[in-house]
């Protein structure tokens, strides 16, 4: 009981701008950004995988840079603008999310929010990345299901759609055509 009281006493009210909305949260000194996003703000799209900075599932964009929410203290982000995967689909799916769904970029889907946020940062800064640039940018995100080829396909498709502004028409692969 004493520990709980100590924790509550040490909490400080911090302000964040999360997905464009101002949020005030009472944050303990040892809370990570991922804990605040998931448990206090209930934005559970951001996942926690390894909790060690290896898998990239918890990636969010803070002040325009991709950051590992599991490995950073929330106190370090006081006043920051934070974008989570929920910021992308207000009413319709974002082109990156659509490309992921159409290319089979996710299977179990647990790593997908992290991949999508890293991809958003990549495409915001480099609208036409090469495969090598994609591999370098996404090296911090791990997927144990897809084998990455479909993920790179999805990044390519999303990049094309974001560049041209027109949805990319998906044509089925020859072995998927049914008569």
């Amino acid at each position: 009981m004493e520990n709980v009281e100590t924790t509550l006493m040490n909490k400080r009210i911090l302000t964040f701008i999360v997905n464009g909305k101002k949020c005030e949260v009472a944050v303990a000194p040892n809370s990570t950004l991922a804990q605040v996003i998931r448990e206090d703000l209930n934005l559970t799209g951001t996942k926690v995988g390894c909790d060690m900075g290896t898998c990239g599932c918890c990636t969010v964009i803070a002040d325009g840079r991709p950051r590992l929410a599991c490995l950073t203290l929330a106190h370090e982000f006081e006043g920051s603008r934070i974008e989570t995967v929920e910021s992308l689909n207000d009413k319709t799916m974002h082109p990156i999310q659509r490309a992921w769904a159409e290319c089979g970029g996710s299977q179990c889907g647990y790593c997908t929010p992290g991949f999508i946020m890293t991809t958003k940062h990549l495409l915001d800064h480099n609208p036409n990345p090469s495969r090598e640039e994609m591999k370098e940018a996404l090296a911090g995100n791990l997927c144990r299901c897809t084998g990455f080829v479909k993920i790179y396909d999805a990044v390519e498709r999303a990049a094309k759609e974001l560049r041209t502004g027109a949805p990319v028409v998906v044509s089925p692969a020859p072995d998927e055509v049914r008569v």
Binding site: N30, T32, V48, D51
Partner: peptide, 11 residues
């Protein structure tokens, strides 16, 4: 599963 950080005071 989230691993909790031990309690500490942040300065």
């Amino acid at each position: 599963m989230t691993m909790l950080l031990p309690q500490f005071e942040l300065h």
